[in-house]
């Protein structure tokens, strides 16, 4: 694995994006990150906003854990709020061969090929926009309603499934 930038650089760029520190309004809640994955032929195969946490695996430095926000449905009592199934919005992984930070601040990962693939996918973590930013805001509402313990468990990015009862 190689990096065209220093580990500090890409890691801090990633952390800033996920936390929303690039917010123009000065309030981090108004910004965040999205993950866009493309196949080697350039076809976009995945796009989702990212929850505000990430973790570099302690056993495998080129393994990054993230939580793309997928699913979600209106709360029965307050339809303007959304609930998320935490087994659906589960942690996902990027195993990368190369990483670089673009001029626009986005962090691009050349993912390791799987199986018979000659070349892996490209995963780009960039500033969330449009529908993805709206989804992220709904997710933030949801997380605010979790207990502090549940929120901490999500932040750890260790569980493959969610056994708790709150919004599971």
């Amino acid at each position: 694995m190689t990096s065209t930038t220093t580990p500090d650089s890409w890691q801090s760029a990633l952390a800033d994006l996920v936390a929303g520190r690039h917010s123009a309004s000065g309030d981090h809640d108004d910004a965040g990150a999205q993950l866009v994955v493309t196949d080697p032929d350039g076809t976009e195969v995945f796009r989702a906003p990212l929850a505000r946490h990430h973790r570099i695996d302690s056993d495998q430095p080129n393994l990054l854990w993230l939580r793309p926000i997928v699913g979600g449905s209106p709360n029965p009592d307050v339809p303007t709020l959304y609930d998320y199934n935490l087994n659906v919005a589960r942690r996902r992984a990027l195993v990368w061969d190369r990483v670089e930070v673009g001029a626009d601040g986005a962090v691009s990962f050349q993912l390791a090929p799987l199986g018979d693939e000659e070349q892996g996918q490209v995963a780009r973590v960039e500033a969330a926009d449009g529908e993805e930013l709206e989804t992220l805001s709904r997710w933030d509402d949801f997380v605010s309603r979790l207990s502090a313990d549940d929120e901490a468990e999500l932040d750890r990015l260790e569980a493959d499934s969610w056994a708790g009862t709150a919004y599971s």
């Binding site: 997928v70 699913g71 979600g72 449905s73 959304y82 609930d83 998320y84 199934n85 935490l86 087994n87 659906v88 969610w162 009862t165 919004y167 599971s168």
Partner: peptide, 12 residues
């Protein structure tokens, strides 16, 4: 009875 709606379209 664990968890509510999945809220997923085919794409999700």
């Amino acid at each position: 009875g664990i968890g509510g709606g999945l809220g997923m379209s085919e794409g999700a």
